[in-house]
Nucleic acid binder design. Structure first.
Lengths: 214, 214
DNA sequence: TTTCTTCTACTGGTTTTCTGGTATTTTTTT
DNA sequence: AAAAAAATACCAGAAAACCAGTAGAAGAAA
């Protein structure tokens, strides 16, 4: 090993910071270079110091995690960002990753998982804690309101709508009257509690109800 | 250790089957209980035999992977299904998981990863190979055909359309004329080469261009 | 400065979706 | 056999989306 890994912690909860530090000082590869309670403090630090990886709480009081992450990556593209959060909402996870994070951990992460994820991230991989993988895998299972129960025909029509077919085309395709298709569409909108196909398709896609376009 | 893990392989490529068998016989915990070249053969077997985990190729000649997976879980809910595939399309991954798969591996998986994933799956976790995590994390970055380049305003409008807002509402929201919104929508349709918002939203969602609903 | 892109806005017309009803037939379940 | 659920079909009108073409103004890039 040539040199120690330079790691920073950004979190406004002293207890979390203490805990992380304790865990990480046991690891001889890792050097905790700095702890910060705000995103902007860390960005300043980053301008004059090299940091290999940062554990970033995404719920900071002053700024939001997304923006901090984006800024970190623009100031120092090679610094890995591991998002650390209590929030297990899928959309937040996705947004962080979209903004360049190397991974996402819930704060209930185990010590073993934490160190694994750090090494994975530094190795250029994407790192998730167990609970996060669960969220990414089964968006609907973690949903408050369940997916409406659809009939076979409704699923077919839903799929065809997503493929951009108009009522007339769908009717031909399924050998029924266009008026029947309209009824199905109407029932779909009602079941999903939306008022146009745009949101219908959005929600259906989020729930993994649609086939990918061949 | 009380008893060996019972593992089955379902794949129509003899070479893959051979390879998997070779790798797995080196592992004294695992007993390869059976190899099958079709989904229905395996389902039959499953009715009379206990299988802890099955490595399932999702591109079988006779049936499709989703349905086989669903059937496996209905015949034997405790059998873990690890999907094995060359296909790295996000929506396929999601569909398999939706249908009860415990994980998804691309066939370029390493030996180490494979065994890790098997243990993770048996342990009730969701298991992904490295490449799959990459896909889940950054849907857009892994696309073959590039996503059309969107302007800032177009992205905003796209998002609002996905949220089910009408032209009039979007116009109010963005403080512009409804006619301007219409133009943006039109440009979006043109850029994505589709002719209605349904397919627009479908494709945008597939590419991870939309925020998920909280 | 000129050019390119983006954002803005318009006219006018067509197609499709959406809304609120109703209702018969077929299939499934009890 | 009766009841419930699903698939089928219709009318008529309102609202929204879609199409084709044009074009000025602001801002960024050459």
């Amino acid at each position: 090993m040539n040199r120690k890994i330079s790691l920073a912690i950004v979190d406004d909860h002293p207890i979390v910071v203490q805990g992380l530090q304790m865990i990480l000082t046991n690891n001889s590869d890792i050097n905790v270079t700095g702890c910060f309670t705000s995103g902007s403090d860390f960005i300043e630090f980053l301008k004059n110091n090299e940091v290999d990886i940062v554990l970033l709480d995404i719920m900071l009081p002053d700024s939001n995690g997304m923006d901090v992450c984006k800024e970190i990556k623009s100031v120092s593209p090679n610094t890995c960002v591991l998002a650390l959060s209590n929030h297990s909402e899928r959309s937040i996870v996705m947004q962080m990753l979209q903004n360049g994070a190397s991974g996402y951990l819930l704060k209930n992460v185990s010590v073993q998982e934490l160190t694994n994820c750090i090494y994975e991230a530094l190795n250029g991989e994407v790192a998730f804690s167990k609970a996060v993988k669960e969220i990414l895998a089964r968006p609907s299972a973690n949903d408050l309101k369940g997916i409406p129960q659809l009939t076979k025909r409704e699923k077919e029509v839903l799929q065809l709508i997503a493929e951009g077919k108009t009522t007339a085309l769908m009717a031909k395709h399924l050998f029924v009257s266009p008026l029947t298709i309209e009824t199905h569409r109407r029932n779909l909108l009602q079941k999903f509690e939306v008022k146009n196909v745009a949101s219908l398709i959005k929600i259906a896609a989020d729930h993994g109800l649609l086939k990918s376009i061949g």
